[in-house]
């Protein structure tokens, strides 16, 4: 069969039409885009069935190797609210959202947070600020409040619904904070080695110390000298566990653990999948692993 030029044009037009109307089922709900899984969970907890939340960074993915699919771009273009961590974490998303959605309201959760300035040379996009503050549940409470404010502004009719959901979720976060504080108190050691510098806020809140970081920057291959330093720290502290992270290859951590005679446990700072699907689930998972290693 030979297709004429007109037929090809017509088929192409059908295809474009199909694409642009593929997802128009939930038109009345508030459309929200969240950059990472913990934010998407907060957005759903506060929004309940009045919002539709799209997560930008798929579970298991690292922001450092992210590239959006056409479908993601389509979903972003319909969003009214974009919730982000800020502090330079979304270097991969800011441009996308600006390109896809013209009248989007951006909620930068880092506003008002006492950010930690990285002492090392780690850089997440712009500046030397450590963006992993969501791993502190007390800061997370403030984030939930910011999301609730943004919802109430975008959809005033449902503001009491959002307020009620936010306050009941904050109660859950408060309980989580208490649970972590009590568990950490029982730890035998307060120093630990992590894979990537994500745990500074968590450590600050609960009085832990990060003794060493295997990979100081994303994709920055550790040098022999650096690994030797980490190994010495592990031996000095008599740590039996090296923490790796689910978004990165555990190869280097495994090599260090072999030398130190310990084993590798996988912390998860982003979550979004399996038992770590929710923020609470993810934090409990991490706490359980830390207890195994340090308790």
């Amino acid at each position: 069969m030979k297709l004429s030029r007109n037929k090809i044009f017509f088929l192409g037009l059908c295809f474009v039409f199909f694409l642009s109307h593929a997802s128009s089922a939930s038109d009345t709900k508030l459309k929200v885009v969240a950059s990472i899984a913990p934010l998407a969970d907060f957005a759903r907890q506060v929004g309940g069935d009045k919002v539709v939340v799209t997560l930008l960074l798929p579970p298991g993915a690292s922001p450092h190797t992210y590239e959006p699919t056409p479908r993601t771009m389509q979903e972003i273009s319909q969003a009214k609210i974009f919730i982000k961590i800020g502090a330079g974490l979304e270097f991969w998303a800011d441009k996308l959202v600006a390109a896809a959605a013209k009248d989007v309201v951006t909620v930068d959760c880092s506003r008002g947070v006492a950010l930690i300035h990285a002492l090392d040379h780690e850089k997440h996009g712009a500046g030397n600020v450590d963006p992993h503050y969501w791993l502190d549940p007390v800061i997370a409470i403030g984030m939930v409040k910011k999301i609730e404010e943004a919802y109430a502004k975008a959809d005033p009719a449902d503001s009491s619904y959002f307020a009620q959901r936010a306050s009941s979720y904050i109660a859950v976060l408060t309980a989580l904070d208490k649970q972590i504080a009590e568990t950490v108190k029982t730890f035998r050691t307060r120093e630990y080695v992590t894979f990537h510098p994500a745990w500074n806020y968590f450590s600050r809140r609960y009085g832990l110390t990060v003794a060493g970081v295997i990979e100081e920057g994303p994709g920055k291959e550790p040098t022999a000298r650096h690994i030797d330093r980490i190994l010495r720290e592990i031996r000095r502290l008599k740590i039996r566990v090296v923490f790796a992270e689910t978004q990165f290859s555990p190869r280097m951590a495994e090599a260090i653990a072999r030398e130190a005679g310990g084993r590798v446990l996988m912390l998860d700072p982003i979550g979004g999948q399996k038992e770590r699907a929710s923020y609470i689930g993810m934090m409990r998972y991490n706490l359980a692993l830390m207890k195994k290693a340090m308790g």
Partner: peptide
């Protein structure tokens, strides 16, 4: 859906 493939390890090597 899982990027914890050692991408950088394969691209730049990881002899250590």
């Amino acid at each position: 859906q899982s990027y914890n493939i050692d991408l950088f390890g394969y691209l730049f090597g990881n002899i250590l």
